[in-house]
């Protein structure tokens, strides 16, 4: 780890000013991702702006809208009563991630910005366009079992590792950010990027912008929801594939539906065409199978992740079955 300056401002504006002072400055929240990356020499900040003193630690209920401050920990969100009752999908997704110890430290803002777990990104002796633009993609013809089947480019086939993000994209969340310029709000679907020619950019967040909170609009998804994560061991492993399903069912008819998948793309993967297909349909296993087929349109696998072409639709079917009560 290199030597760096460390500051801990108390005001949001101060934090933004402080981070702008250095070209190579980073915000530090829970540190569960950033500190690891620093230890491995992947991120070498000149300055760390610790934001843990900023007043961004509240979960608020604004007329049914849920607002989660950027510094609320993953555990606090997952255990929050209002969240559990109104947005159980979010609780489930968060609890499917990492370990209790990590979730106690990890923050909402930090989780949104956690970097990929691609092994080539993590090893500074190997090529990685995300870490060193232009150095090549180690995974493309290397070990790519964990990698993307949707939306990848020949520059990068990494996936976004977050579970929370999958639920947030399904729930149509918004990200509030402040920066040197005016504060702005980014719809969740536009927050994370596909790799294209610039895999070094994970998100559309601009330099020196600070995430202040996340909003989740009111939605009728309190009952028929499920987050299903398939992984190599029962906990403490990143998703091979995950599926977030939120259904609004009346009289066995799907009135409204939101679907997203994790472990399949550079961003949490929203399944809008599949949602359109399911809307108005009657709950049945056959319908879910057809939906899963639609969800897989455009999927492309690499040497070691071909299984995802089957695991992804299967996971979606199972999540739909569980959410709709077809299986317990």
């Amino acid at each position: 780890m290199n030597q760096f300056q460390y500051v801990r401002p108390a005001e949001t504006s101060g934090a933004i000013k402080s981070v702008a002072l250095d070209a190579n400055a980073h915000f530090l929240a829970g540190g569960t991702n950033l500190v690891d990356l620093m230890k491995m020499g992947i991120v070498t900040p000149e300055r760390l702006v610790d934001i843990n003193n900023l007043p961004l630690k509240k979960i608020e209920n604004i007329q049914g809208h849920l607002r989660i401050g950027a510094l609320v920990t993953n555990t606090q969100v997952a255990e929050n009563k209002f969240v559990k009752e109104n947005f159980p999908l979010l609780s489930m997704a968060i609890n499917a991630g990492a370990s209790p110890q990590l979730r106690n430290m990890a923050t909402t803002g930090g989780n949104l910005l956690q970097r990929t777990r691609c092994p080539y990104f993590f090893d500074t002796t190997m090529p990685c366009n995300k870490r060193v633009p232009g150095s090549g993609c180690g995974a493309l013809e290397g070990y790519n079992r964990m990698h993307a089947i949707f939306g990848a480019s020949d520059k990068c086939i990494a996936v976004n590792p977050s579970d929370m993000n999958v639920a947030l994209t399904a729930l149509n969340a918004f990200v509030h950010v402040s920066g040197p310029k005016a504060a702005r709000t980014i719809p969740f679907a536009d927050f994370h990027r596909l790799p294209g020619d610039h895999p070094e950019q994970d998100t559309t967040l601009q330099k020196n912008e600070l995430i202040t909170s996340i909003d989740i609009p009111t939605a009728p998804f309190s009952k028929n929801v499920h987050y299903l994560k398939v992984r190599d061991r029962s906990s403490y492993a990143f998703a091979l594939v995950s599926a977030a399903v939120a259904l609004h069912i009346e009289n066995n008819t799907i009135k409204d539906v939101r679907l997203a998948m994790g472990g399949v793309a550079h961003k949490p993967w929203r399944l809008t065409a599949t949602e359109t297909f399911l809307k108005g349909k009657t709950v049945s296993e056959d319908t879910f199978k057809q939906a899963a087929q639609i969800a897989m349109e455009g999927a492309k696998a690499y040497e070691h992740n071909k299984f995802k072409l089957k695991l992804a639709p299967n996971t979606l079917i199972q999540a739909l079955k569980t959410a709709s009560g077809l299986t317990v």
């Binding site: 092994p119 080539y120 993590f122 090893d123 002796t125 190997m126 180690g138 290397g142 070990y143």
Partner: peptide, 13 residues
């Protein structure tokens, strides 16, 4: 990874 002769999962995560 046999192209490099290096482990790709040499850590507890």
């Amino acid at each position: 990874d046999d192209r490099f002769g290096r482990l790709v999962n040499g850590n507890f995560a």
